[in-house]
Nucleic acid binder design. Structure first.
Length: 317
DNA sequence: AAGACGAAAGTGGTTGA
DNA sequence: TCAACAACTTTCGTCTT
């Protein structure tokens, strides 16, 4: 909870200057843009969770080009109801040369603008889409979900609207379920409980709507792998990459022996972390881990006893 | 005193008749 | 709609460090 705070950068100015790992001094850092993280190759420490790709957004095809393309205007985004592509007529009464427009034409321009607005946000569908996208943005921000999840959720929501799946359901329940689905799709899952806590909906409601969306849109998401929780939990417990790797191996073995399916993934992740933390000499109590993973100590206990027994792990407590 | 342990009863959700 | 069911939780007394 305390040690890795120094490495996180709140303001992005200083982010680029990080060239070596504060933990082991290695200069081999890699950027995981999908997760928005800067990670040390040697020890696996997450140096910055909010790393942003500041490179050019296009490949360049020769050396000359490299310098000048760089960032070229806002990217097309699912987060804008028109994907950021529509035209807007300026509000000033000037033409493109900056000369003022004769007053006899002003009325015409005004009408143009009016119609432009109407075309842009035309139907009721469009208008509700705008508010839904705002809602996605709001919830994702409070939960600290990265941009790609928002984009993905927006895509799922759009699809749901197009297929008329909203009928009989509240917009916000579909919004939240889209976010939940997106978080799983992007391999950065949050539990239903986490979404329930961040919103006014109950877990069951979100789950129900999610299953509905999943079926109708054929999202085909596989059950959440416990491994996907390791990164986040280990971070919050200030555990090193070595421990995370150990826990990952344990879960990998468990997966091969078919001990995973049917069990709650967060409980399994918690148990694997507990075993790894004890064996790797960075012990955390069952309670600490249970708290982070949002399960009880008893569950951590039961899962880890299972794993130890079935995988023949020796462990001295 | 804190942590780990495990038994037993309770909870909320799924499934299948 | 109801009962069986599995996973997980709550609670609590006991043992270990």
């Amino acid at each position: 909870m305390k040690t890795d705070v120094e490495y996180k950068n709140k303001d992005h100015q200083s982010v680029e200057q990080v060239t070596e790992c504060p933990e082991c001094g290695s200069r081999r850092l890699s950027q995981d843009y999908d997760r928005g993280e800067l990670i040390c190759d040697e020890c696996g420490l997450v140096i910055d969770e909010t790393y942003i790709d500041q490179g050019p957004d296009w490949r360049s095809f020769d050396m000359k080009e490299e310098g000048d393309k760089s960032r070229a205007g806002p990217p097309m985004s699912e987060m804008m109801h028109d994907k950021g592509l529509s035209t807007n007529i300026s509000v000033s009464d000037r033409d493109s040369y900056g000369k003022s427009i004769p007053s006899k034409n002003r009325a015409q321009i005004y009408r143009l603008r009016k119609w432009q607005r109407r075309i842009r946000v035309s139907s009721a569908k469009e208008r509700s889409l705008v508010s839904a996208l705002k809602e996605i943005n709001r919830i994702a921000s409070t939960m600290g979900l990265p941009r790609n999840i928002m984009e993905s959720a927006a895509r799922i929501y759009r699809e749901a609207v197009e297929r008329n799946l909203i009928r009989g359901r509240s917009i916000s329940s579909v919004v939240i379920s889209s976010l939940y689905a997106a978080s799983r799709k992007m391999n950065l899952p949050r539990t239903l409980d986490e979404f329930a806590d961040a919103t006014e909906f109950k877990r069951t409601e979100i789950g129900r709507t999610y299953r509905f969306l999943s079926r109708e849109l054929e999202l085909q998401l596989k059950p959440t792998k416990p491994q996907l929780y390791l990164q986040r939990y280990c971070n919050e417990l200030s555990l090193s990459g070595t421990i995370r790797k150990m826990a990952e191996n344990i879960l990998e073995d468990a997966e091969e022996k078919d001990l995973i399916s049917g069990k709650g993934p967060s409980g399994l992740a918690a148990a694997a972390i507990y075993i790894a933390s004890v064996k790797g000499g960075e012990r955390r109590t069952q309670r600490e881990i249970a708290e982070i993973a949002d399960v009880t100590e008893v569950t951590v206990r039961n899962r880890y006893k299972d794993l130890v027994k079935q995988l023949d792990i020796e462990i001295d407590v």
